[in-house]
Write a protein that binds this DNA or RNA. Structure first.
Length: 251
DNA sequence: CCCTGATTCGC
DNA sequence: GCGAATCAGG
């Protein structure tokens, strides 16, 4: 994997948005291991994990093993076939969304998530978390955009297609005709703040992140998004892909 | 089983 | 530095 500034930036952005490592990996066309490893090396903040390993023990065990059978090098390399499981046939046709969860807020609003299988989406650190953006130094208009970025909305990727349809229907609200980028400063601060904190409003522009957040060059796609989606048609196609099929085309 | 993230360690 | 293998919890 060639970690260009581009990919690193995207990793950072997606990581900071709270996407799962596997999710990030799929979008970048790499494995979750690569994502985690890189994130770890970059010193990115560890995100809530239910797991914590009992240190020392396993390490000692491994050390002992390698110590004893130093000759039998690279045993697990051969087990590489196991990895095929990940890139294996994506028979599942059901789920569709990568992170179309934006809907969570909207669905809740309309009160009909029909979420028999939706796992309490609200318990995730969704919208609020995106407020802690590190790209604050940017221009005000970007600050606004940041709060509408992709991950502000993530839902369990396991959301069934049916539910997704229901959600999309629930989202058919008309986005306020607000020219957010056009004249942010022309609006009263209160209004701008309100706009920022309004989770239900769909972005007026495609929020696909480009570049490194926190740097002047960072920007969002900016194209006209699909109705009810944070991305333009082009990037929505990249973001909303079948669960298992993503690794190929992402990137 | 599926998912998740963290760590280790050969390369 | 990289990431597959592995661990480990949900």
């Amino acid at each position: 994997m060639e970690w260009t500034d581009e990919t690193i930036a995207r990793l950072k952005a997606l990581w900071q948005e709270g996407l799962s490592t596997a999710e990030i990996g799929r979008q970048l066309g790499i494995t979750k291991n690569a994502v985690v490893g890189k994130a770890h090396r970059l010193g990115l903040p560890a995100r809530p994990s239910p797991i914590r390993r009992q240190d020392g023990k396993t390490a000692a065990k491994k050390t002992a093993e390698t110590g004893e059978q130093a000759k039998a090098s690279a045993p697990r390399r051969t087990a590489k076939e196991t990895a095929s499981a990940e890139s294996a046939p994506a028979a599942s046709v059901s789920a569709v969304a990568a992170q179309p969860a934006a809907v969570t807020a909207d669905a809740a609003t309309s009160g009909e998530a029909s979420a028999s299988q939706v796992k309490k989406p609200a318990e995730k650190p969704v919208v609020v978390s995106s407020t802690k953006t590190e790209s604050a130094p940017a221009k005000p208009l970007e600050t606004v955009a940041v709060n509408e970025k992709p991950a502000e909305q993530r839902v369990k990727a396991t959301v069934p297609a049916l539910t997704k349809v229901a959600q999309e229907e629930a989202v058919v609200e008309k986005p306020a005709p607000v020219a957010k980028k056009a004249s942010p400063a022309s609006r009263p601060a209160a209004q701008r703040l309100a706009a920022v904190m309004e989770p239900r409003r769909r972005s007026a522009t495609c929020c696909w992140p480009l570049g490194d957040p926190g740097t002047p060059g960072f920007h969002f796609c900016g194209a006209t998004p699909l109705p009810g989606k944070p991305y333009c048609a082009e990037h929505a196609a990249m973001a909303y892909v079948k669960l298992r099929d993503r690794r190929e085309n992402a990137g």
